[in-house]
Amino acid sequence: MTSNGWLKISGGRRGTAAFLAGALTLALGTGTAYAYWTTNGSGSGSAAAGDMQTVTVDALVPGDTPASALIPGGTADVVLRVTNPNPYPVQVYSVTGNGSVTADTAHPACTITGVTFAGSLVPLSPAVSIAPNSTALVTLPGAASMDATSQSACQGATFHLPVTLAVRK
């Protein structure tokens, strides 16, 4: 060691070359570490949310019959034909009445039906799943009732109960 506190490297060119290689490695390593921890980047990306297509409720077709018949003073099941045009399953979360109950066209004298929908079924328990791109029948047990004001002309009628469905993915 010299008197000024510096380490004296001996060995000629090999020692100097080894020292320079070590110093260069240390410098490159420090530069790489600095670049790793201080590097910034930017870019752009995009995503789009798809729109859920309208899930529809249709009138029953021949063969879609409820398990129970509606009579004055009683209740009966309501059957909904629900179509899901989406490429993913949806759940029918709630069903609410949305208008006046009417009789089918084969019973024009049935103007006072006495039929009511059981009100809001919120939340529907259990929620009903409808498979992607399919139609399913949803039965609401005892959801329709008929009081004693129903006219005799309503015998044998099929009643149309306008409803609104809330569906979720």
Rank of each mutant, 00 (worst) to 15 (best):
S42D: 11
V95R: 07
N86C: 04
R168C: 00
A48D: 02
I9R: 14
P62Y: 05
V82D: 09
T83I: 06
T16R: 14
T2H: 09
T135I: 01
V55D: 00
T65G: 08
L60C: 02
T2F: 05
A47R: 05
H160W: 00
T139N: 09
C110W: 06
G29I: 10
P132Y: 10
S134N: 11
G29W: 07
A109E: 15
T111S: 08
G74P: 02
L28D: 01
G114S: 08
G45R: 08
S94Y: 01
G15W: 02
N86F: 01
L140H: 08
T2D: 12
G15V: 04
S68T: 15
D58H: 03
P123N: 12
G74N: 11
T39R: 15
G119P: 06
A76L: 05
A23F: 15
L26T: 13
P141I: 04
T158V: 15
T149W: 01
L161A: 02
T158D: 07
A106H: 02
T105N: 13
D58C: 01
F19W: 13
A157D: 09
T116K: 14
G22T: 10
F19H: 03
P85C: 01
L80P: 01
T116I: 14
P141K: 11
T2Y: 07
H107F: 13
T16K: 13
T56D: 00
S94F: 03
G142C: 03
T25S: 14
R168N: 11
A157E: 09
G11F: 04
L165D: 02
G11Y: 04
V82A: 07
L124Y: 11
H107W: 06
A109N: 15
I9E: 06
V78T: 12
P126K: 11
W37T: 15
N84L: 03
P123M: 12
W37E: 12
A35C: 00
N133T: 13
N40M: 04
T105G: 11
G50E: 12
D51E: 13
T139A: 08
T75Y: 03
L140K: 12
Y88H: 08
A27L: 14
T113M: 09
S10H: 03
T16Y: 11
V101P: 00
A67D: 14
L165E: 05
A59I: 08
G50M: 04
L20N: 08
Y88V: 13
P87S: 14
V115I: 13
A143T: 08
S100I: 06
T56E: 02
L140N: 05
V90C: 05
S10E: 14
N4I: 08
P162E: 04
T54E: 11
D104E: 10
G5T: 05
A153E: 13
N98G: 03
H160R: 13
S145L: 04
G73S: 09
S100W: 00
Y93V: 15
A35P: 00
S125I: 14
M1N: 09
T32W: 13
D64K: 02
G12P: 03
A143Q: 11
V57A: 02
Q151H: 06
V128W: 00
G74H: 06
G119N: 06
R81W: 06
T105Y: 05
Q91T: 12
V92G: 05
P162H: 05
I9K: 10
D64I: 03
G63A: 05
D64Q: 08
